[in-house]
């Protein structure tokens, strides 16, 4: 609970700060915090991924982009009542929705009575792999993982297409400005 509260505080910091460097570093702090929360919630695989990806790779990429662009956010020009209103209404609706959710951490909720027990009981007889996350990831739900690898592949191609070309930035800039509406 302490960790979760800390998480909320860091999120408020991310919302309020205008220096983008500080925002990115707070983002890394946020990722490590939520990785700890995942560890507490018995998900070591996810915690490891979040710590490596969220705090490591995402932060490095953000810093690289900040190096290419500017690091301060300009002040908003119009009052921001409307976004606040939208967010508040969404939050209220979602909290109303949680009141119907089953209580946290009980073993007989619908989540735990569907396919989860099947994976847990069949992983050793079917595949001989004690880490159920690995066996579900690579074997039972191989299709999901395949799609995900294809997404990474596509993203890498996309970034390379976006950034590798245009060795002469000035000409490229004029061309894209002409294309813009």
């Amino acid at each position: 609970m302490v960790l979760l509260t800390l998480l909320a505080v860091v999120a408020i910091g991310i919302v309020r700060l205008r220096n983008l460097f500080a925002v990115v570093i707070l983002g890394a702090v946020y990722s490590f915090l939520i990785a700890t929360v995942f560890l507490v919630l018995d998900a070591p695989d996810v915690a490891m991924t979040e710590a490596a990806v969220g705090a490591g790779i995402a932060t490095v990429m953000m810093l690289a982009v900040l190096h290419l662009t500017k690091t301060d956010e300009s002040r908003p020009r119009q009052p921001q009542i409307f976004p606040l209103f939208v967010s508040a209404v969404t939050g209220a609706a979602l909290i109303y929705g949680t009141l119907d959710l089953p209580p946290f951490g009980e073993a007989d909720t619908p989540v735990h009575t569907h396919v989860g027990p099947y994976y847990l009981s069949q992983s050793i007889p079917d595949t001989g792999v004690p880490n159920v996350v690995a066996s579900v990831l690579a074997s039972y739900r191989g299709w999901d993982t395949l799609g995900e690898v294809v997404v990474i592949f596509t993203a890498a191609i996309g970034v390379l297409l976006l950034l590798r070309r245009a060795q002469r930035p000035t000409r490229q800039a004029t061309r894209s400005r002409r294309d813009a509406p």
Partner: peptide, 28 residues
């Protein structure tokens, strides 16, 4: 703990960072 959400979120994290990379490329 139920392994199914872990698997889904594992893939979601990596896909999330991939889309983030494309977004940052667009920003540049």
């Amino acid at each position: 703990a139920n392994p199914l959400p872990h698997v889904l979120i594992l893939t979601a994290i990596v896909v999330g960072v991939a889309t983030l990379a494309v977004g940052l490329g667009l920003v540049v």
